[in-house]
Amino acid sequence: MRFLPDAEQRAFAASLDALLTAAGTPVVVRDWSRGDHTSGRALWSRVAQAGVFALAVPEAYEGLGRHPVELAFAFVEFGRHAVPGPLVETITAAVLLSGADPGIAERLLPSLASGGTMATVAPEGASYALDGDAAGLRLSWAPDGIRLSPGHGPVRPSLDPARRLTPLTPGGDVVDTTTEQALVWARLATAAQALGVGLALLDRTVAYVKQRSQFGVPVGSFQAVRHRLADAKIALEFARPLVFGAALTMRPADVAAAKVAACEAAYGTARTALQLHGAIGYTAEYNLSLWLTKARALRTAWGGPQECRALVVSAAGDRRW
């Protein structure tokens, strides 16, 4: 038992962090929100070159095999940098298609791994898929199976402007595949992304309260402010091991627990971040908004808090819980 990232995992996360920092993601996010995908696609290829999408694609289809732990490290960085696009959905599609007929898998998976194609998936029961206008591959998760959707409808806004929601055109061919694992991967990636969003919100808010002065002192010296930030730190630091523990086991209840904890921690941190920034944090123009709104959206994406809690309780007869 050694529940710590190894040197390679740390280096992988650090290299993604450097790549995303250099890319200046806030500008990319704002382009994406307007429906201008050029800078987002360029960033997508760089992320793909770093191997992120290949982490969910079998080697037989030009991927690196299944690596949920490394994927979790990548998605924490995506969250920290508010990277836009159907990231979780592309991973989910990769896992779905890995179980498909080899002909289909061979045709579609290599280009997901290489970053040539973005994919989106409309979750079961959802009326939308994320970024259907940007995705070259659209899967709709219907009760009778996974369908390759022929198109998408008009974009509906999300509370997070960087998430462009599109209904998928009904019909299309059914892909014969197993769906069980795909939902687990989608939740894990969302949980890791939410954790990253929360960490970014905390970092930005700590920096802000150190430099913002009122009554002649930094507002970060007031105990009411300090204690809210301490609570945010506690929530995030206890969500983190759940996310990586779940990536190691990939048991549905572990992943559901990680999703609840990471999304609650991120959302709680968003509320704290907004409160401690004051009015500036309430503006769309200030970059804090990119993370504030994402924390809200990720909570209900791929299994909201109630659904995930129900899964945790139902699995808890198991001694491992």
């Binding site: 050694r2 206890f238 091991p241 627990a257 609840v260 808090p305 809690r309 945790v312 309780v313 808890a316």
Partner: peptide
């Protein structure tokens, strides 16, 4: 109430894993 039970289970698991990570650092 079910949600509070779930949160208790999640919290206990989080505490276990947090402690495993801290113990790993200590052993390093």
């Amino acid at each position: 109430v079910r949600d509070r039970v779930a949160d208790a289970l999640i919290g206990a698991r989080a505490y276990q894993l947090f402690t495993y990570a801290a113990a790993s650092r200590f052993l390093d």
